[in-house]
Nucleic acid binder design. Structure first.
Lengths: 338, 338
DNA sequence: CTGAAGTGATAAACCGGTATAGCTCCTGCA
DNA sequence: TGCAGGAGCTATACCGGTTTATCACTTCAG
C-alpha cells in the first residue's frame, strides 16, 4: 500500500475513522484497549499524518516562519544566524513543527512575506529578529493577528512576546573590564543605529562613562560591514590622541579593525586593545585571537521556539523571557594600556 | 470578511466553485468573459489560495526541502550555504514555491527527515549537498520516489539529476598557476576523503603532478575543521624540506593555516604561498589577504532550483547541468618561491 | 430536420484528516 | 423497576480547494 490513511487503519481495526483519530491524538473517546490496538496497527502500517489534511481541518499548520532581512553577503559570515536557526529547530522538532526560513532584501519584502504566509495559511507564527526603532513589522503583525516572538529585545511598543538578553549589562561587562585594566579612552564601533540593540549598547556606554572615569567614549555608527568597520577604525587611529581600546559591535568588524591596526603598525594588544561583541571561529582564528563576548545563541533559539509555541497555543499571553547573560571570553587582544 | 474562499468568490460572481477554480488556474471550462469577471472579483477580495487545501486535493505542496548534515558550528562560518540558500530561494520564489531548511547532525538523521517529509507530504522534492562516495541517500530517495537534485557533483551511480562545476578543472587552474609561478613542492590540505568533491580534487592534483614537473604533491585528509587544518599545516611546515605552496580545501582551513605559518615564523607569501579553495569575507580580511577560488554560489543555487522544478514536473528527465567554472582570485598570499 | 460534436457551465465526489451530534450499552441510585 | 448519566463508539459534516461526470445549449454537417 502506497500510503496508509486513517481510513485504512479504521478498516483494519474494525472501527470508525473517528475512533482512530481519537486514539492517535490521545484524546478521550476510546477505551485504553482499543487505543492500544489502533496505535499498534498504525505503527505497523507506518502511518504518518498527512500534514495538509491536518492543516485543513484544524487550523494549525505545524510550521513557523523566520524571515531574515539582510543581504546574503553579510549573512554568510554571521555565525549568529546559523546557530539561531539550529536552536530554533531543536526547540521545534521536539513538537515536530517545521521551520520556514526566508532570506529577503529589506523590511518591505519581509512584511510582504508575512502577508502572504498569513493569507496562505503557511505558518502558525513567526520569529522576529533585528528589531528597529519604531519597527513597522510590529503593527503589521498585530493587524494580521499572526503570533510572533521578538528575539534580542523586548517587544517594542506593541509589546510582543520576546526572548532577550541584556545588551546593557553586556556592554557594561566589557567596558568595566577595560576600565579595570586601566583604559580611559575607549571607542565603540557600533552597528546600524536604527537597530534597537545598537542603541541600547550606545546608551549603556554613554551612561557608564562618567562613573568609570572615561576621558572619551565615542560610539561611531556603521552598517555592520567589514568595510565600514575598517574605515571607522582607520579614522580613530589617525587621531592625534588615539583610543587605547576599541569595542566592535560584531566579530566581522573587529577582525577588519584588527587588520587596520596591523596595517598602521599599531600593535595589539600593546598599543590597542580590541573586544568583539560577538564570538565565532573568526575571532579565534585571528592572531592575536580576539577577546569577545560569547552568547549561547543556540540556547537563545531554543527558548524562542518554546515561547513561540506557548504564544501560538494561547495568543493572549505576554512572555518576556530573559536569557543568560553573555560572558566575556578573554583572549590575546586585550591588555592594560601602555 | 476574514479570509475569502473560492466559494465566496463563486457567490459574488454568481457561478459555481468549479468555474472559479477553472478561472483562477487558467484552464479551459469557462469563457473569457466569465474568467475575467472572476479574476477581477478574486483580485478585489484579495483572495489567496489556502496552501493546505490545495495540497490536499492535488498532490503538490509547492514546497521543496534542503537538509544540511553538518554541525551548526561549521555552518556559521561557511558563506557557501547562506549564498546557496539565497540562490535557491531566488530560483523558487519566482514560482512561489517555498523552501524548507533543516540542519541535522548526521546523514542518518537526514534520511529520517526525507522519510518523514515524504510520508507527511511536506515537500515536492529535495536538494542534496555534500555527496559522499556510495552515498546512502541516493538509494533512499530512489526508493521513496522523491524528486531530488544533487548539488556539486554528478548524481552518482543512481544517476540523479545534478548541477555541478568541475572540481577537476578548478584544482588544475590552481596548481597550474602555482607551477607557473615556479612552485614544485605543493601540498594539498584536503577535506573529508569521504566527500566526492574532495576525492575529485585529490585525483586532479595527483594526475597533474607529473605533467607539471612537481617534485612533491601530497594530499592530506582532514575533517574540514580549523583545528585539523592548523595541525596538518604544522606538520607540513615541520618537515626538513617544506612545501613552498599549500592549497586548502576550504577558506576556514586556509585561514587557520596562515595562522600557523605566522606562529612558526614562515613568511607568506615570501617562503610559503597559500591558496584557499573557497572564497569569502574571511579570506579578504586576512593579512595578507588570501588568493582564493571564487564560485558563484548564488547562481549555483538558482540553477539547482530550476532543475529541481523541472524534475518535479517530469520525474523521468535526467538533467546534469554544468555551471560556470570557478575563477581564481589572486590576492597577496601567492608569489614565486624564494 | 435530425444527429453529432463542441462550448460553457454545474453539481457532486474527493483528498485525509478533525469535530460533533447522536446512538447504544452499561452502571448506579432512587 | 425505572431512569439519569457516562463511557465508548459511529456516522456525518466540514475544511477549501481540484476534478470529473453530466447537462443545457449552440452550431454545423448531412
Amino acid at each position: 500500500m502506497a500510503r496508509p490513511t486513517i481510513a485504512d487503519i479504521a478498516d483494519r481495526a474494525g472501527v470508525s475513522k473517528g475512533a482512530v483519530s481519537f486514539a492517535l491524538n490521545g484524546r478521550p473517546g476510546v477505551s485504553e484497549a482499543t487505543r492500544a490496538r489502533i496505535l499498534a496497527i498504525a505503527e505497523q502500517m507506518a502511518w504518518r499524518p498527512h500534514s495538509a489534511a491536518r492543516a485543513l481541518g484544524a487550523s494549525r499548520v505545524d510550521s513557523v516562519g523566520l524571515v531574515i532581512a539582510r543581504p546574503a553577503r553579510t549573512l554568510g559570515v554571521e555565525p549568529f544566524f546559523a546557530h539561531l536557526v539550529s536552536g530554533l529547530q531543536s526547540g521545534l522538532s521536539a513538537h515536530s513543527i517545521s521551520l520556514q526560513l526566508l532570506i529577503v532584501e529589506d523590511t518591505e519584502a519581509e512584511i510582504e512575506v508575512y502577508r502572504r504566509w498569513n493569507s496562505e495559511h503557511r505558518v502558525d507564527g513567526v520569529i522576529l529578529v533585528d528589531l528597529t526603532v519604531r519597527d513597522p513589522r510590529i503593527d503589521e503583525l498585530k493587524a494580521l493577528e499572526l503570533p510572533a516572538v521578538v528575539i534580542g529585545g523586548r517587544g517594542g511598543k506593541g509589546n510582543l512576546p520576546s526572548v532577550w538578553a541584556s545588551d546593557r549589562d553586556a556592554m557594561l561587562a566589557v567596558v568595566e573590564y577595560l576600565a579595570a585594566l586601566g583604559h580611559r579612552r575607549i571607542a565603540h564601533v557600533a552597528g546600524t543605529p536604527n537597530f534597537q540593540h545598537t542603541q541600547r549598547r550606545m546608551r549603556a556606554l554613554r551612561d557608564a562613562a562618567p562613573r568609570l572615569g572615561l576621558l572619551e567614549a565615542p560610539s561611531l555608527a556603521t552598517d555592520f560591514s567589514d568595510a565600514e568597520g575598517a574605515a571607522t577604525t582607520r579614522k580613530l587611529l589617525s587621531q592625534a590622541v588615539r583610543p587605547t581600546a576599541i569595542v566592535y559591535d560584531s566579530d566581522v568588524m573587529a577582525v577588519a579593525g584588527l587588520g587596520v591596526a596591523m596595517e598602521m603598525g599599531v600593535s595589539v594588544p600593546g598599543e590597542l586593545s580590541i573586544v568583539a561583541f560577538d564570538d565565532s571561529i573568526l575571532t579565534q582564528l585571528m592572531h592575536p585571537a580576539l577577546t569577545a563576548l560569547s552568547r549561547d545563541t543556540f540556547e537563545f533559539g531554543r527558548q524562542a521556539a518554546e515561547v513561540l509555541l506557548e504564544v501560538i497555543a494561547d495568543p493572549t499571553v505576554s512572555i518576556n523571557r530573559r536569557t543568560a547573560d553573555p560572558v566575556l571570553t578573554v583572549r590575546e587582544s586585550t591588555a592594560p594600556p601602555a
